[in-house]
Design a protein around this nucleic acid. Structure first.
Length: 104
DNA sequence: GCCATGGCTAGTA
DNA sequence: GCCATGGCTAGTA
């Protein structure tokens, strides 16, 4: 039985539309856990696949891809670009243009 | 004990 | 570089 906070994180994750991105911290905040960024990390790491979560739309607070090269970086970049999100060579996305605002 | 964070400090140039 | 944060969807029996 998943905890309420976990359900809220899942809900927040699934509410990010294609072509938009959000930071681990912002998702946690939207789920009512101000300092729960690592919960988001943990959830993505463990149930990202099985639960069909849009894990590639989650970035660090500065808009960069957290995954290392050879460890998912390339795939995440490709998935974002397939949704028309621009990612520069260093793996950075412009939050002003592609960041999702959960208060909408 | 684990985890793909994030914020803050220390020590060097 | 350090450390608070917080829920546990891993693999075996």
């Amino acid at each position: 039985m998943a905890a309420e906070s976990t359900k809220r994180i899942l809900y927040a994750l699934r509410s990010i539309p294609p072509g938009r991105t959000a930071s681990y911290g912002a998702i946690a905040e939207a789920a009512g856990i101000p300092k729960g960024a690592r919960q988001v990390v943990r959830i993505l790491n463990s149930m990202g696949r099985s639960e069909n979560l849009p894990w590639w739309r989650v970035l660090r607070k500065d808009g960069s891809i957290a995954l290392p090269e050879g460890g998912g970086f390339e795939l995440q970049k490709a998935l974002l670009e397939s949704e028309n999100v621009e990612v520069d060579r260093s793996g950075r996305v412009d939050r002003q243009r592609f960041g999702w605002d959960f208060s909408l």
